[in-house]
Design a protein around this nucleic acid. Structure first.
Lengths: 225, 225
DNA sequence: GATCGTCTGATTGTCGACAATCTGATGATC
DNA sequence: GATCATCAGATTGTCGACAATCAGACGATC
């Protein structure tokens, strides 16, 4: 007997395995720069620090390996994956491809992109307040929404993975002395180009935007080859 | 005292952890259709079958989860990820983007693509012999080389991941009754367009090629939504 | 006969112990 | 003083046992 839900939308509680909590903690440490590229990641040390056994730590590390944040050599050890200038360029160039592809799909399918305005507005607000963290959050929300609106789960998964590492890079970069308002101002023209279905212009704007974001000095990464 | 290697290129032997061997075996079973989408993946059963403990099996399954071949619900169970028509379309459409991006990079940088001819020739040879498996191998080698020549490790990683699932799809599809020679004939024009630096034409050819490869009947997947 | 406990079997999650592997140091041998 | 064994420490890999969780079956209760 199929019935309507008698209760409202009580949010589904979920029981999180330890490996997930552990992975979240370590991921955070990597993304906020506490664990810099090259730092050894030792199972036993983390297990003691977090008061769990090695098993969930091992699995958490495997998750982060899949994220591309940790690399491992069998029987040798694991460490936070070093960043190279080439990898940074690859991250940003591929992100540019994803966003261009997303725009093509969005324009072709005439998807409503009004959501983007919310994020853009949030960016201006954050810029006014000089709130750098909030600006970044809104910026990421904007770009992720752009990908999500393309309705392409596979690309969204790749994008999430890719953006994880971009966040890591941004954390390592001394993020001050940037013109917050200028960053915010980049976005409305993109929305307008999409809404007027000017694909060429929208993609061109996104490309410029991404390229300017990818500027980074090698010494900010620690290693260079 | 840096010295030249006294020995020739003796290939480095490597000690493979069990999880890798186990992952290879299970991956193969998924890719050749022995374990179809939806099949439950149970640790203990596999451990007994392979005569190892559960630990390496667990880790192998995590590897395949990262590959996108297995999905898991905590405390419930794991199974070979079901395929949907939408996912198939996403796989092929994203592959098309990757190949177009690769071609742009290759043409811009004037990369030598003579390697592609080797793979193309192998395809014709296989087609003559009516050797379907060899044709597929050469076809994959052709397309992977195209990506590799773009010199973009990040994209290559994504492509490998993506192509894994395309292999799975191709295995499920009743692959007979196709004109092998016609498949082979698709490729030389691509090489020629790249070598004559006609980016537009090369990308257009690749797109057509990918799109025609993506045709699949829903009932060939088992599930449809 | 609907609802609620309770139980049971299946599966995954976690633990502590032990084995295998790698690295570098130390010392024996020529 | 090179080269080779051997050893010790650190780290990861593997194992078997136990705990937690979930789904479904089976009744008891109203």
């Amino acid at each position: 007997m199929m019935m309507a839900e008698p209760n409202g939308d009580i949010s589904r509680i979920e029981n999180v395995p330890l490996r997930v909590s552990v992975a979240d903690i370590i991921r955070q440490a990597i993304l906020n720069g506490t664990m810099k590229p090259g730092t050894p990641v030792v199972e036993m040390a983390l297990a003691e620090q977090l008061q769990v056994s090695r098993a969930p730590v091992r699995e958490a590390i495997q998750i982060l390996e899949a994220d591309g944040l940790i690399e491992s050599e069998p029987y040798k050890g694991k460490r936070v994956k070093p960043l190279t200038l080439k990898e940074v360029e690859e991250l940003y160039s591929l992100r540019e491809q994803f966003e261009a592809f997303a725009i093509r799909r969005i324009v072709e399918r005439q998807v409503d992109v009004s959501e983007l305005r919310r994020h853009s507005d949030a960016m201006f607000e954050a810029a006014e307040r000089g709130d750098f963290a909030a600006l970044n959050t809104a910026d990421e929300a904007f770009h992720r929404a752009l990908i999500r609106l393309a309705d392409h789960d596979l690309m969204l998964g790749f994008w999430d993975n890719l953006y994880l590492r971009i966040r890591q890079i941004m954390a390592l970069r001394n993020s001050a002395n940037r013109d917050l308002r200028a960053v915010a101002r980049n976005h409305p023209p993109i929305i307008e180009a999409i809404e007027s279905r000017d694909m060429i212009r929208a993609i061109s704007l996104i490309s410029d935007h991404t390229r300017s974001a990818s500027q980074i000095a090698p010494e900010e990464l620690g290693i260079a080859p």
